[in-house]
Design a protein around this nucleic acid. Structure first.
Length: 199
DNA sequence: AAATAATGCAACCGCAGAGAC
DNA sequence: GGTCTCTGCGGTTGCATTATT
């Protein structure tokens, strides 16, 4: 067993991906589709493990990946969602179209972690002290409504100078009668997590 | 210009959960 | 019910790049 693992370790290529490998993986997935990563790594001819293929596709090659620096809105959302969810990077990334969990995690560890630490020290009345933050507007009940039951939604956000945060307006054309058509969330995290499943 | 330190990010590792057998 | 395989997640590492001395 250990010997097999050892063999696999020596056979599997590691390190940074070359452009040729990217091309192979991309074209394989374009013709055969995603999933079954062990098969992909075997059949595509790539000497990479399934995990490595999956990670490369998910974090780099997948269409609609947004690269480049985070916008202030994205930063704000990451900070707020991290406050609410902790290190649930995949959930947080699910709220940021085009961003991956790895990217969000890296961004947090390199930029925001420092920022939030220093802001804790410098500004005790920052986001964490916002009186609204511990008062989720929505009940988690909403989750029990299936995907199909959700109506058309629209989100707009406005920077609130006085609270130093974004206010999110969520407009729902929803058949769920006991919820208002327009909900205003001071804490966007609840709005997103309660209404939108991961993308 | 060279050496060293700091930073950012891509990739790997280990673990857990789900599903198939 | 037990085992195996696959997949996804979060934590960590290692390397390339950039900044500083």
């Amino acid at each position: 067993m250990e010997k097999r693992v050892e063999e696999r370790k020596t056979l599997v290529k590691r390190g940074l991906w070359k452009p040729e490998e990217d091309m192979i993986l991309r074209s394989y997935i374009e013709t055969h589709g995603e999933g079954n990563w062990a098969d992909i790594s075997r059949k595509s001819g790539l000497k990479r493990g399934g995990k490595s293929c999956r990670l490369r596709w998910k974090n780099y090659l997948r269409p609609n990946i947004k690269r480049g620096s985070m916008s202030p809105q994205e930063q704000d959302l990451i900070i707020r969602m991290h406050k609410l969810l902790g290190n649930r990077w995949s959930l947080i990334a699910g709220r940021l179209p085009g961003r991956t969990d790895n990217e969000v995690k890296n961004y947090w560890n390199t930029h925001l972690n420092k920022k939030s630490n220093s802001s804790k020290q410098n500004a005790p009345e920052s986001i964490s002290a916002t009186p609204f933050i511990d008062k989720p507007v929505m009940s988690t009940e909403v989750r029990s409504h299936g995907e199909g039951e959700r109506g058309k939604e629209g989100i707009s956000n406005t920077w609130m100078e006085e609270t130093n945060c974004f206010q999110y307006d969520l407009h729902i054309e929803s058949p769920i009668s006991h919820y208002p058509d327009t909900l205003v969330f001071v804490d966007p995290c609840f709005a997103f997590t309660d209404f939108f499943p991961p993308l």
